[in-house]
């Protein structure tokens, strides 16, 4: 099963990716080693925490999802949310919260969420994703190690 084969199967711009292909997650999970405690976590950089404290109101938090699409097969999607679902995982640091659903977590566990500020663009980014094999240079799309 190559990355190209996966991209050929998974449609672009689909909604919840693994709702359509539930067995994909099972296959990838069984091949990974038993994770250490830290490996399942998502870390927030200081700039991410600071930005979230600035923009969130009340019980709002940052939701990170992985969906099919982008030039490398998968892409990150950020949104502000207030509802935590049963399959969500909450990662809190310094009062800021990032929530990931369990399907998406399989693709980003061990990664860092950052708020990157450049002259041309300021946005949330996923950095140092050990589940990602490669990404396009803007950082929003990635392919998965198989």
């Amino acid at each position: 099963l190559t990355a190209e084969a996966v991209r050929a199967v998974i449609p672009r711009r689909s909604g919840r990716l693994l709702a359509v292909f539930p067995r994909l997650l099972t296959r990838w999970e069984t091949t990974s080693s038993i994770p250490e405690a830290g490996e399942g976590q998502i870390r927030l950089t200081d700039s991410c925490v600071q930005r979230l404290l600035e923009i969130t109101e009340g019980s709002e938090f940052l939701r990170l999802q992985v969906e099919g699409g982008g030039c490398s097969g998968f892409q990150y999607k950020f949104s502000l949310d207030t509802v935590i679902n049963p399959d969500d995982r909450v990662f809190e640091q310094g009062g800021a919260r990032v929530v990931v659903d369990s399907d998406s977590l399989a693709f980003v566990k061990g990664a860092q969420v950052d708020f990157s500020q450049e002259l041309i663009r300021s946005s949330f980014q996923v950095l140092n994703n050990p589940q990602a094999q490669q990404g396009c240079s803007c950082g929003s799309s990635f392919s998965v190690k198989v």
Partner: peptide, 23 residues
């Protein structure tokens, strides 16, 4: 917006972009 801010170039010469629009 809250999540991001960026300069965007609306370029009539472009024949194709990648999904996120940066390239």
């Amino acid at each position: 917006d809250k999540l991001s801010s960026e300069f965007v170039f609306n370029n009539p010469n472009i024949k194709g972009t990648c999904g996120c629009g940066e390239s």
